[in-house]
């Protein structure tokens, strides 16, 4: 069974796939920063940023349908944002006979546009970079080793834990457990406790296995291609565009 992370990656060898992961992480981050500081009235800046995201997604190999499905991740934010014009105060405008706050409409646009662009940047990163590479990229960016290790182990064991949970659920169902009401939740709570203990014990065994292969407390350095100047320049381009658009919009 493949985990969710498996579905995010689009196998391919596009120029974006070939960029070093650390450069892509920085690029996506800078792009998101640029987008988030862009004033909400600078619609043209958002439009240009959207072109950048669409181009990058196209190069990564997203098909339109696929992209739409993945953008669904922003729906919870959008759902909330849609209410703002209804509840915000200030000047009103009439749309289809409903009074909407102009201030609220801007706020709503702000949330939706920024969330969508940010998601687009993450989708480019996730679609072009296998998780192990993201983990390595974080390591090369000097993110503290402990945090990198936690991410790496989470990635490695999340599937196992989810599978284990699914097995527990099947075993409960097989013995007639069919929770419908809150007071039937006790077996779920206790099994969560059992899962915790099992995961903890697994952690001990994994640590034993690491010691057996000479682990001394710090993750060893392993061989990987370092980011080249062109990797950095290409990735930084995305960030540079959004940042300069933001600056331009702020100045005008």
């Amino acid at each position: 069974m493949a985990g969710a992370h498996q579905h995010l990656l689009l196998p391919g060898t596009s120029p974006i796939h070939r960029l070093a992961p650390e450069a892509k992480i920085v690029g996506a981050f800078l792009f998101a920063v640029g987008v988030s500081i862009t004033p909400r009235t600078a619609v043209w800046a958002f439009a240009l940023n959207a072109v950048v995201v669409a181009l990058a997604m196209r190069i990564t190999g997203y098909r339109v349908r696929q992209a739409v499905v993945r953008f669904a991740a922003v729906l919870p934010f959008v759902g909330f944002a849609l209410f703002i014009p209804l509840i915000a105060g200030g000047d009103q405008t009439q749309v289809l006979g409903i009074g909407l706050s102009i201030e609220g409409l801007w706020a709503s646009w702000n949330v939706i546009a920024k969330a969508t662009l940010g998601t687009g940047a993450s989708l480019v990163l996730a679609g072009s970079t296998p998780i192990p590479d993201v983990v390595r990229g974080l390591g090369r960016l000097r993110v503290p080793t402990v945090i990198v290790s936690i991410v790496a182990f989470m990635f490695r064991y999340l599937d196992l834990i989810v599978e284990e949970m699914a097995r527990v659920r099947v075993a409960m169902t097989a013995r007639g457990h069919d929770p419908r009401w809150l007071w039937q939740a006790k077996p779920i709570a206790t099994s969560a406790g059992a899962m915790f203990v099992r995961s903890y014990e697994r952690g001990e065994r994994v640590h034993g296995a690491m010691l057996a292969r000479g682990f001394t407390g710090t993750m060893p350095q392993m061989d990987h291609r370092a980011a080249t100047l062109s990797d950095w320049l290409l990735s930084a381009a995305a960030g540079a565009i959004s940042l300069s658009l933001a600056t331009l919009a702020l100045l005008t």
Binding site: I131, P132, V135, A152, F153, F155, R156, Y157, L160, R202, R205, V206, G208, A209, M210, R213, G214, F215, T216, P220, Q221, M222, D223
Partner: peptide, 19 residues
């Protein structure tokens, strides 16, 4: 599953030699 703890097979096999 207790023994293979790195994100890829390559890194897992390299873990011991790296140590």
């Amino acid at each position: 599953d207790d023994q293979l703890f790195m994100p890829t097979v390559r890194e897992d096999v390299a873990f011991g030699p790296a140590n």
